[in-house]
């Protein structure tokens, strides 16, 4: 009987896709640490999901959504992988990035004039490429089929896709959905969905 229990535990441990509730450390999908201890503590696997999409819902630009990602950008750029900004709402300002310690040598900014036609295609092409490390994009909304395609593309290359939306589309297939809000002296993150973890956590961050 004991032998059978062990076999079952072994089987469950072997496949990382099987999720078991309330067992810390059971999530073994690849992650990249966020650089914020409070956020790492609540995310499954303690980091941003690599090879997956993250949806970040922001009420406005400029509240700290980029500062949240600066540690990730430093890490990706430091590893020599490509960091791509797709259709950003304003210019990413190089002197500020250098000031924050992000290597800008392998960074690329892609402007997309016809978003409806070209945005999904551009994102998929970039996410699928093995040299890509991080794609930051500002689609206001994306159709569900495009979300799924992008998810597959990211899984193929192991890149991270950070998509900033207004949250109007409701649930998406992103591996992680966060909603940002402003609180006294910083940013409040609400985890709406986390694959392999629990949602509903609120994390205040001082940035």
């Amino acid at each position: 009987m004991a032998g059978k229990t062990e076999t079952l535990t072994g089987l469950l441990d072997r496949d990382p896709r099987i999720w078991r509730g309330r067992r810390p450390g059971s999530w073994r999908a690849p992650v990249i640490p966020t650089g914020h201890a409070a956020l790492d503590a609540v995310l499954p696997g303690s980091g941003w999901p690599a090879g997956a999409l993250t949806e970040i819902i922001t009420p406005a630009q400029g509240i700290g959504e980029l500062r949240l990602l600066l540690p990730l950008m430093r890490r990706i750029a430091g590893d020599g992988r490509r960091l791509v900004w797709v259709a950003p709402p304003f210019e990413p300002y190089a002197p500020a990035l250098v000031q924050a310690g992000v290597e800008i040598g392998r960074m690329l900014v892609v402007a997309v004039a016809d978003r409806r036609r070209d945005l999904g295609w551009t994102l998929e092409l970039l996410l699928r490429h093995p040299e890509t490390g991080l794609v930051l994009a500002w689609p206001r909304t994306l159709p569900p089929s495009v979300w799924r395609r992008l998810q597959l593309a990211a899984a193929e290359s192991g890149a991270l896709g950070m998509l900033f939306t207004d949250g109007a589309a409701g649930g998406t297939t992103a591996a992680l959905r966060l909603s940002l809000g402003v609180c006294e002296g910083g940013l409040e993150l609400r985890i709406l969905k986390a694959r392999g973890g629990f949602c509903g956590a609120r994390v205040p961050l001082m940035l």
């Binding site: 900014v109 970039l126 040299e131």
Partner: peptide, 26 residues
């Protein structure tokens, strides 16, 4: 064997136009 980064940039530029790609510089 796959597409190189330069080839990817060529494809992006061919579709999005010659002004679409930029690199931040100081």
């Amino acid at each position: 064997g796959g597409e190189s980064w330069d080839e990817l940039l060529d494809r992006l530029q061919a579709r999005l136009g010659p002004q679409a790609l930029r690199r931040p510089m100081l």
